[in-house]
């Protein structure tokens, strides 16, 4: 139908081949779909679909291997950077990425995250931070903001007993193995473009064997934040961005 409506010369945007046709299970308004898409677009644009191996986490993006049209491995909860290490060490010429949420990367997988980056594993880590455990139904995450309510912090996160939201990205940026560390968002067209550019940079650096590149995407969770998509984006801008400010955190010195 759309072929009849849109003439080829007017076509400005089409679905990337690096995503499959499978319908995504993500909730309406969730940032995962966009984050998947820009990563897939970069993979296709670089012509590396046949050389890329991705690692899916446990969390909302546990089924990412159904959506990315590249070879993928599904890791145990938090272990994606270790799995990616195993892949990259035996296939140094391939492009390897992990795609992880905040619970996966910054709670149960903190050791794997820090040590893979400390070894400077030449991989891309895409870290989607929405401040909550989405898949299991809205429990408190390491990145849940102070006072933010979740099903396991029903009266709000209390720093005295629950600790403070973990700025894992600033933490890992200290490590010599981290080559390029940036924090992006995908809720507005301008942000989508910037985030895509960051992912492109990261994979270009991987080609040059530069070390770990880390792209955080601050995102929303309308379902578990119990907001409409529009409200959740507004809430994200007003509450998440002040604590997790967007922008590059570590840029290569030799660039």
């Amino acid at each position: 139908m759309s072929e009849n409506l849109i003439k080829p010369e007017n076509l400005v945007y089409q679905k990337t081949e690096a995503l499959t046709d499978r319908v995504m299970h993500y909730c309406p308004g969730c940032g995962h779909g966009t984050a998947h898409r820009i990563l897939a677009e970069v993979i296709q644009e670089m012509g590396i679909m046949d050389q890329t191996i991705g690692v899916a986490p446990v969390g909302c993006s546990v089924l990412a291997y159904y959506y990315f049209n590249v070879d993928m491995q599904e890791a145990a909860h938090g272990r994606a950077p270790a799995v990616a290490t195993g892949i990259k060490r035996v296939f140094p010429e391939k492009f390897v990425f992990t795609y992880q949420g905040d619970g996966d990367l910054a709670a149960i997988g903190t050791a794997e995250t820090i040590h893979a980056i400390n070894r400077g594993e030449n991989i891309l880590i895409v870290f989607v931070n929405n401040g909550i455990y989405g898949m299991t139904g809205g429990q408190m995450a390491p990145t849940t903001l102070v006072g933010m309510k979740s099903s396991t912090s029903p009266f709000g996160r209390d720093t005295k007993t629950m600790g403070s939201p973990l700025k894992i990205t600033e933490l890992i940026a200290q490590l010599p193995g981290a080559y390029f560390v940036t924090r992006q968002a995908v809720h507005k067209p301008g942000n989508v473009r910037k985030a895509k550019k960051a992912i492109r940079k990261a994979l270009e650096y991987q080609k040059l064997d530069k070390g770990t590149c880390f792209v955080e995407i601050v995102s929303n969770c309308p379902s578990n934040w119990k907001m409409t998509p529009v409200q959740s984006n507004k809430w994200m801008e007003e509450n998440m961005f002040p604590y997790y400010p967007l922008g590059d955190i570590k840029v290569p010195e030799d660039n």
Binding site: V55, Q73, R79, V83, G86
Partner: peptide
């Protein structure tokens, strides 16, 4: 834990 997951990736 990391070691066995590296094995998973390589295997």
């Amino acid at each position: 834990i990391a070691a066995i997951n590296m094995v998973y990736g390589a295997a």
